[in-house]
Structure formats: C-alpha cells, structure tokens
Design a binder for these strands. Structure first.
Lengths: 175, 175
DNA sequence: CAAGATTGAAGTGTCAATCTTG
DNA sequence: CAAGATTGACACTTCAATCTTG
C-alpha cells in the first residue's frame, strides 16, 4: 500500500526524495497551516491582547456551552492544547478578569470555568477581528466549493487520530 | 468581497461565528498541519536525534545544492524558519559534525555551510524514516488526485505571501 | 491508589540588539 | 552606514512531578 512509486524519485546525489507534486502537498499543508495560525494569532494579540488559544477558550465558553461554564477537563477535550497549557491560559484569563474559576460542587477535584461579563464583551469584539482575519487569509482566497474540499481533505488526513491531544481528548469526551 | 454571508451564523448567545463547513476547513487545516508536523518531527527525533527543521536543512544541502554547500542566507530563504533559528540549528548540526561552517571567500560576512560525510550518511537514513512517516500520516490517507488537489488548495491559500518568513525569503532569493 | 488540576524544568522559537565585515 | 550572521532576553509549549480530593 502507501504512496505510489512515482511519489519518490532519486536526486543526482542519490538521496531518495519526494516528487514535486507530493512535496508541494506536504509543504503546502504545513506552511498554509502555519501562516493562517500565525496571522490570526497576531491579529488578535494586536487588537485585543489575547492569542488564538485564549480566544478559542473564550469562544467555547461563550458560544458553545450552555451557561458560559465548562470544567477544565471539558476545555482540554475541545481545545487542541495540552492540559497544562489550558491551565496556564485559563489562569491568565482569570488574572485579566475575563473568566472565573471555582471548585465544582459535585466533585471539588474539578474546576468550573465561567466566562465573565467582561469576557463576553471581549469575545464579541475579538470575534469580529477573528472573522475578518479568516476572510483575509483563508476564505477570500478560495471558492465556496474549495472550502468544502479543503474541509474534506483535511478531515481525511486527520482520520481517526483525534487532533493534537488525541488520547486526552478521547478520554475526556467519554468521561 | 470576502466570504459569503452564509459563512457566518449567529449563536443563541448572540456571538457571530463560522458556519460548520467553514469552521471545518479552518480547524482542519490548522490541525492537520499540526499533526503531520508533530508526527514527522517525533519520528526523526526518536530514530535519528534530529528534528524536522534540522532534517530539512540537511536535505537542502544534500539534495538541492550543487556541491553540498549553501550560504546561511540561502538556507534562511528556503527553510520556513527565521534567520536566528537557522543560525541555531546550523550551530547544533556543526556541533554534531554533520555540517561545517566557513567564511565565504567572496565576502567574509557570509558563512558557507557544507554538509559533511557524516551528515550525508545521516541524511540518507533519515530520509527513509521521513518518507515512511509521510506515507503513514499523509499520503496513504489520500488518493493521488487528492494529493494534487491539496497541493493546489494550499498553494492558493499561500498566494503571493511567501511561506512563513516571507520578506526574508524574497530578499534572499533575489540576492 | 486514581482522578483532576497545577507547577517546575526544559525545549523550541522569535524579536531586537549586537558584532563583524564591506 | 548597510548587510550578514550570531546572541540575549523572553514567550510559548510540553513532559513529568506534585498537590489535593475522592
């Protein structure tokens, strides 16, 4: 199985390497991901003082939770960040008064994170920045059907393997 | 211009956010890039003690240069790394005896990096690891035409903006 | 002891300042 | 002063150790 023989060629020096088309797909995927990530992160930092990871956490709390609250474990499951990273980002958000942390009633080992009024306000503003950035670096460059195709291809690449923090994510989604 | 209105919807809480299809393309691109990068980096580190950035530098020297030599500026232009990062990686490679650095004859401000015999040997081995990893995480999951399509879409996203270290890259390619 | 979360140490990367040569 | 490269200080991220509660 695996890649067809034509994917690999031999350079003058004898080193086996990828054919141009395969190299373009590989390098393109890595660099496009980097560029989009970096640009959006920079936009948010310059305009609102928070990075993309912090923005995503506010977004999960503000837009994809029932009452603006999620436990740390749930956040770790959704964000493509390690448990320790989520912990540090949330601690920073709390320092800025954008979220609140409190022990969970049912099991005080868990910590419930709740977005504050100020956090919601920042989220609203930052969402506009984020959407504008996405349009600029990604969506304005593709047709609607190309967006769908990109979604399909990347999903296929990701396959079963859950994004980034695979094991932790799967565990948390089950628990 | 930009994205169609259908790309943005309004959640119960009133926050504007991406429609599922657009979110999938965005998140998919970022996470697929991260996963592929991370896996290939780990493969190389475990098997050969060098990361993906160092591997790419050896590859440029060993497979895509005329006599195994390139100036620092040329390396910076090709690798998606900052000038300072290239400097540190090359310094590390020299410590391990995989490359050699010497002042350039024509202009001793420049440094010429040359891959050593040991570096070439490591490159040969690491290339096999790298190709196997690429097959596992990327190419075995896509058909040949999907690989082409991914290359086309990511190139479109990258557009004029040169990958990562845009300005530096363009400057160096001209000089 | 197991689960949930935090923290210390270390790796990796960037920006800005610096050093050297033209 | 400008160009090429290196270095210092700092930011971000992860792994492993730790702390607390069940």
């Amino acid at each position: 199985m695996g890649m067809p023989r034509s994917a690999v060629t031999q350079s003058a020096s004898g080193v086996r390497h990828l054919s141009p088309s395969y190299a373009a797909a590989f390098l393109g995927l890595l660099r496009a991901g980097e560029v989009v990530d970096r640009e959006l992160d920079r936009d948010l930092r310059e305009a609102h003082g928070i990075g993309l990871p912090a923005f995503e956490i506010l977004l999960y709390l503000g837009a994809f939770s029932d009452h603006g609250s999620l436990r740390m474990g749930q956040l770790t499951a959704q964000a493509p960040l390690s448990q320790s990273r989520v912990s540090r980002v949330v601690a920073d958000l709390e320092r800025r008064g954008l979220v609140r942390r409190q022990a969970w009633q049912d099991d005080s080992r868990s910590v419930v994170v709740t977005i504050t009024r100020g956090g919601t306000a920042l989220l609203d503003e930052a969402s506009e920045t984020h959407l504008a950035g996405l349009d600029r670096v990604l969506f304005s460059r593709l047709t609607r059907s190309e967006v769908s195709e990109l979604a399909r291809l990347t999903a296929k690449v990701l396959g079963d393997a859950a994004p980034a923090t695979g094991a932790a994510r799967r565990r948390a989604l089950e628990g």
